[in-house]
Every structure is written in C-alpha cells, then in structure tokens.
Write a protein that binds this DNA or RNA. Structure first.
Lengths: 148, 148
DNA sequence: TTGTAATGCTATGGATAATAGCAACATGAT
DNA sequence: ATCATGTTGCTATTATCCATAGCATTACAA
C-alpha cells in the first residue's frame, strides 16, 4: 500500500507503470511518434535526422563508420543514404578506391539548419514535461543504460 | 565548451548522446534486447510478458481492455493471445455472448511465477547500472513523457 | 605477396505495428 | 420494443524497421 502511494503519478489502471523497463519502452515509443510527426514536414525520418546531425562539420565519415556509431547495420545504411542522396542532402566523396565519405551537400546545409531548430524545440518540450527536480537526471541515467 | 564538460559521461565519439530523445531511444532499444534475451528461455516475448503481468489476479479483463491499457491494437492482440492460449498459459471465459475475459490458466500460474523472478532480477540489474543519485528519478521522469 | 579484415552492396526474412473492414452483440434513448 | 450507435473479436493486408547471409572489391599488415 505504501509502495503504491509512494510511486508518484503512476497510472492507476496500469500496474506496469512502476517498472523502469516498461516506462522506458512507453516513453521511447511516445517520443519517437512525436518526433516523427515533427520531422515529417522536413521530409526526414528519425534515422535520417540522426545521420544529418552526426556528420555535422565532418567530411571524413564513411557509411560504415556512421552505422557503427548510430548502431545501424551497413546493409540498412544503404537505403537510408540513398534517400538522403536522392533528396540532394548529402554527397559521396571518394576517400579510397573502396571507401567514400558522406558529406553534406548544399541543400543539406539548409536542411540541417531547419533540423536544428526542430530538434532544439523538441528536446525543450520533452524536458518541459518532466518535473524540474527530475530533469537533470534523465540523460545521465539513460546513458548508463546503453553505454558500454 | 562548458556545456561539453558539464554533460557527464557522454560518448566522445557520439555527439548525439547529449540529446534526451536520442539517449531515450538507445536506452530503450538496449533494454528491450536484453529483456528479450531473458524472456526467451521462458518462451515469452516482451508483449506476452506484459499481458501476463497485467492480468495478474484479475479475471475480468477483455482483450480489448488489455489492448487499451498496453496500447496494443485489437487486431494485434489476436495473434498475441492465440500464442498464449496455444501455450496453455491463458484461457477465455465468456462474459457475454460478445465479450470474453482473458484469465490465467493452470500452466499460466507457473509461468507467471517464473516471469516474476526474471522481471525482478531484470529491473534490479537495470537500476544497478544507474548511479545512485539518478536512480529514483528515472521512473517519474519517464512516466511524465508518456502519461497523458 | 599472401592471408585477413573491411567496405559497400544485394537479397531476403522476421517481427512489429498500422489500417480497413466485417458480423455479432451490447447499450442507451426514445 | 425498437432503433441508432458504439463495442467486441476477428480477418486480411500492408508498411516499416531491423537482422542475417552472402558477394565482389579493396585496404592492410605479417
């Protein structure tokens, strides 16, 4: 009984909302849906946006390296980069006869600017939903859950 | 510069790990993969487990009601419950000529006990990865992100 | 130079989830 | 009692994401 009272703001009709794993899943799902909606007007998917943010200011990252950092398989990088290239947002720049750097194209810079604004607003709105005393703890806690 | 120094424990090679949205996605993905591994020996998927936990001690919940709470479409409840029923973990009990309650079968009780142990260990291991000063803030912060 | 590993790619399959539609039934208002 | 409306459980289909396996080419190190 005391435990129920202490678990702040848990959904009365959902006994699972006290479980970190369950709340993590639900929060991530809600967040992704919302972010997807906000990125749609830019013609970007969430994975697309993460690539654009990652290659910011760099002209030496290969597809494989991007995938390694973002945890996207090389095979799945292919349609993703094809999409960005078809949209004129990125270009490929040969490093070797084997590797190629993914660099921002001219139109990509403008997209990146719009993206920065959307992301900044999104992250601000995200944090605003969290009670002030919890806010600063979220990112460190989450990073501890997936960083090796 | 100060911001970078202040953002504790951010992956040096991943500028996105300072973003709440990104860390949320990565943490949820890592968590789900780990949980899937731990549930596999029980022959359960994550969604299956959430249903078993939800109907605990209740004999009056319909498929539609379970789906409403767990945010699973009615159409997608069908194969899920068929799986649990084929495994002998649940039974259907007519409430109406239209509705039927999903109740735990005999074998389901044993599965639920095993499940409780796995979940308890899993949640404990999850929280153990988080620095003590952040721990208590995680669930409240996450719940704020998806609770209406 | 030769074995090993990495790159970029094709092809494919599994799992999840979203949509549309349907017959049967419940429910509340008239 | 009846009628409009909403709900239930289901079928069927589709989109999307993600994982695996395999392949030709190239880099790299012993």
């Amino acid at each position: 009984m005391i435990a129920i009272v202490n678990s702040e703001r848990c959904n009365l009709d959902n006994p699972l909302s006290a479980l970190p794993g369950y709340t993590l899943r639900r929060a991530a799902h809600a967040m992704m849906a919302e972010l997807g909606l906000r990125l749609a007007p830019l013609g970007l998917r969430v994975a697309d946006a993460s690539v654009l943010l990652l290659i910011e200011g760099r002209a030496d990252m290969t597809s494989a390296e991007i995938g390694r950092i973002l945890d996207i398989q090389r095979a799945n990088m292919v349609p993703l980069l094809a999409r960005l290239e078809a949209a004129g947002l990125i270009e490929r720049r040969a490093l070797n006869r084997k590797s190629q750097a993914i660099v921002l194209a001219a139109a990509g810079k403008a997209a990146q600017d719009r993206l920065h604004r959307v992301i900044a607003q999104f992250e601000a709105d995200l944090l605003a939903r969290i009670a002030p005393e919890h806010r600063a703890h979220l990112v460190p806690a989450l990073n501890a859950l997936w960083t090796p």
